[in-house]
């Protein structure tokens, strides 16, 4: 059987450079400090206070732009749910495989009851070892479940961020143009196994291939 090549890591696609001023937290703090100091000491002039506040508003606007350029909506709506689904599929696949292994082991155990002596003893040890090893599914399942719940927490945090900075505006989703659809790189084709509910069936693939004839 051919060995499966390890999947190549996807390199993140370069995003279009967005003209923006990077937000330096220290700078923003400096502006706030200036405003605060002005309000404590001698009364600042209306103009200077207005100027400082305008600067602060600019920083907040830039911060919002920076946050939205990270496409938190995409992270929340696409990346995180996809990651959770993939992890759930791992749990399901390992459970199925573990059950199949145990089905086979139980058959060996049944057959073993007709044997005596050394052969029976060594088969007994082997089956015990298999049952013990099958415990991996429980352990990995619990670990994966933990990761899934962490992803859900991140999703909630992003939700909070979107609500706080979103101004109630619907976030514009990236639309896929015809051009985008045509140009698929080799990396775009490395999607890994699909979940069983989304996967294309063998019959569908056969039909697709037949369409080329």
């Amino acid at each position: 059987m051919p060995t499966r090549k390890p999947k190549a890591k996807k390199t993140p696609k370069k995003k279009k450079a967005v003209a923006r001023v990077p937000v330096k937290t220290r700078k923003a703090v400096k502006v706030v400090d200036k405003v605060m100091k002005g309000s404590k000491g001698s009364a600042p002039s209306k103009e200077s206070l207005f100027g400082e506040l305008e600067e602060l508003a600019k920083y907040i606007q830039n911060a919002k732009k920076e946050i939205f350029s990270l496409r938190p909506d995409e992270v929340k709506d696409d990346f995180l749910p996809t990651a959770s689904d993939e992890l759930d599929a791992i749990i399901e696949a390992t459970a199925d495989a573990t059950n199949a292994i145990m089905d086979a082991t139980e058959i060996i155990e049944e057959t073993m009851s007709g044997l005596d002596g050394k052969a029976a003893a060594s088969l007994m040890t082997a089956t015990t070892n298999i049952y013990e090893a099958c415990g991996f599914q429980d352990i990995t399942g619990q670990r994966i479940t933990k990761v899934v719940s962490t992803l859900k927490e991140i999703e909630e945090k992003i939700d909070g961020l979107l609500n706080a900075f979103g101004d109630g505006r619907p976030v514009k989703k990236k639309t896929i143009t015809k051009k985008d659809k045509k140009v698929l790189s080799d990396e775009d084709l490395l999607n890994g196994p699909q979940s069983s509910d989304k996967a294309t069936s063998q019959a569908e693939i056969d039909a697709l291939l037949a369409g080329f004839d």
Partner: peptide, 13 residues
């Protein structure tokens, strides 16, 4: 146990 595989392992052992 909430994992059926673990129940099966325990039962067999």
């Amino acid at each position: 146990d909430d994992y059926n595989t673990m129940l099966r392992i325990l039962r067999n052992l």
